[in-house]
Amino acid sequence: MSENILEIKDLVVHFETDDGCVKAINGLTLSVGKEKTLGLVGETGAGKTTTALSILNLVPSPPGVIKGGSIELDGKDVLQMSDKELEHMRGNDVAMIFQDPMTALNPVLTVGEQIAESIMLHEHIPMKDAFERAKEMLKMVGIAEGRAYDYPHQFSGGMRQRVVIAIALACQPNFLIADEPTTALDVTIQAQVLDLMKDLINKNHMSMLLITHDLGVVAEVCNDVAVMYAGRIVEIGTTDEVFNSTRHPYTEGLFDSLPNLKEQGEELVPIKGMMPDPMRLPEGCTFAPRCPYATEACTQTVPELRQVGGTHYVACHAYDDPSFRLRRNANG
């Protein structure tokens, strides 16, 4: 038995539209350890949400097509599961917290009904009993039990995200996917929701894949980090490794574009250019057109992930030269 709860290998997901083929995920490999939290970081459009939906085999089809690879959850390949097995797995073994709590809840059902639904479906108990359990779940996420009879429009954004969390945790899954759970919330509420999630995950011994573009959130919550660019992992390692000995030029770019409170007034350094159009990905390394270190070799072949430390991997041709250092690390 492996140490990992989730292992994705060489996943390829394309969206075949009338205008062309959108290459959302192009050979993604990552794993999440038991009772560990992996942060999946990247810009909008890097394929983070598609990765999350693939794990539940919920990529909207058509137009989405999973072209290849495998996604093993506790040793079982999600992509080979029957509809029945998928229904059993979703919500029960793996649950998902969605990005926008404003649209993730069904407007015509009470929040109690929505939480109770997964309990009813997976534990095969009557709706009435499930509803009582739903009330307990609400209490657990800090909402008064009596509000189970209210509808989503009667809640604020932060409260709704708590409801979404309650739905996800209702059946005590052992793996949680959180797709930018705090992006749509106010900063003050973000911290509350993150604390709540951290707390519940520790208490229930869960593993989590946390999707975010916020490196601050990663530093606070995650054991490991994977940096994603144009449908591939470019750097993966423990939070300490990735933050303190950054290896990939793209990760360096992400850090440089963060404001630094200690050195106020210093100009932010954005990453030049834009993410490539996923319909027309460049040859070779997809980051090469924006990369300050790019050489001729980068436009030829796609770099493979290589080990650069204990659990630290990076996909970059620059390390063909053993003396290569990022500017960020050169001074330090």
Partner: peptide, 8 residues
């Protein structure tokens, strides 16, 4: 999608 992710 939320409903599907619940296992409905």
């Amino acid at each position: 999608t939320t409903a599907k992710a619940k296992g409905a």
